[in-house]
Design a protein around this nucleic acid. Structure first.
Length: 271
DNA sequence: CTCAGATCCTGTGCGC
DNA sequence: TGCGCACAGGATCTGA
């Protein structure tokens, strides 16, 4: 379930483990991810040193200097430390680093992505050039959101999940943030008042930061790079709580499909 | 241009 | 128990 907090947590785990280490070998066991992994990726990576790990939107960036290895976890991607002998069916990439560090990219649904890009071309690359602002930066504020809802007929939920406007928010944090802001997910974006935009920005920031503090959400199989669970799933206020009581007013939580995604809200608290 | 829906893929959990 | 179906963290393409 990699949304911003989960991707950030994986980055932090990777960073401790791989920073400063050179790549000794790479095995691409299955090239069929969301986009076909370049045949020559392994060869190109060997000998390069991982200078640092960064996150942009929901992408993990392995900074190699002149080059940057870009990874997206899709729905089910994850990295872990592990040896060659334990590799299983969905362990698609195996990388050996200096000091006997070995990391594995696992992704059952294969919606993830791995691509080597010239560092200087990153911002203009097709994967990055349309991305909106980071939600935990000062660029994401009341003014910005209010400007971006003007004239938009789409639901506010689909708008905050739109990575060309603000990045990192996925299906869980959209529902959770809208609950905290007391805004109905179905509400037409153009109908949000300036005040509601202010509340929503604050709620998104608060929700993402709280999840980060708790190590992200571990639903299904998400684990930290070190193998630990996140704990934010125990703090969900509406997500996956259809029919359960609203923690604020006691009303039964509703669920419906909005733009193809499950959406949860309290019909009493959210307007 | 905008927006909703289908699509890619495998695993899980539910009802029958 | 076993089967079929609905659904699952995302991004992208199509077409209305």
């Amino acid at each position: 379930m990699p949304e911003l907090p989960e991707v950030e947590i994986v980055c932090r785990g990777l960073e401790k483990c791989v920073t400063g280490k050179a790549i000794l070998s790479v095995q691409v066991r299955n090239r069929h991810l969301r986009q076909l992994v370049d045949r020559s990726l392994a060869k190109k990576l060997i000998g390069k040193k991982i200078l640092r790990i960064r996150r942009r939107a929901k992408y993990i960036l392995f900074d190699l200097g002149e080059w940057c290895l870009v990874n997206h976890l899709g729905m089910t991607g994850n990295w872990r430390q592990g040896s060659k002998s334990e590799l299983g069916v969905h362990d698609h990439i195996f990388i050996q680093l200096q000091n006997k560090i070995e990391i594995i990219y696992n992704d059952p649904r294969r919606f993830g992505l791995l691509e080597l890009i010239k560092s200087e071309d990153l911002e203009q690359h097709r994967l990055f050039k349309h991305l909106g602002v980071e939600p935990l930066s000062s660029e994401f504020n009341e003014e910005y959101l209010f400007k971006n809802v003007q004239g938009k007929n789409r639901s506010i939920k689909s708008l905050i999940m739109d990575q060309t406007i603000v990045v990192g928010i996925g299906n869980i944090y959209a529902s959770e943030s809208l609950f905290v802001a007391r805004v109905l997910p179905q509400k037409s974006a153009k109908d949000l008042t300036r005040k509601e935009c202010k509340r929503l920005v604050a709620s998104i920031v608060k929700t993402l930061e709280k999840s980060l503090q708790l190590g992200g959400s571990s639903i299904s199989d998400f684990r930290h790079f070190g193998g630990e669970n996140g704990e934010f799933q125990n703090s969900f206020k509406v997500y996956d709580r259809e029919g359960e009581f609203c923690l604020r007013c006691g009303t039964s939580i509703c669920r419906d499909t909005l733009s193809g995604r499950s959406t949860y809200w309290c019909p009493q608290c959210q307007r």
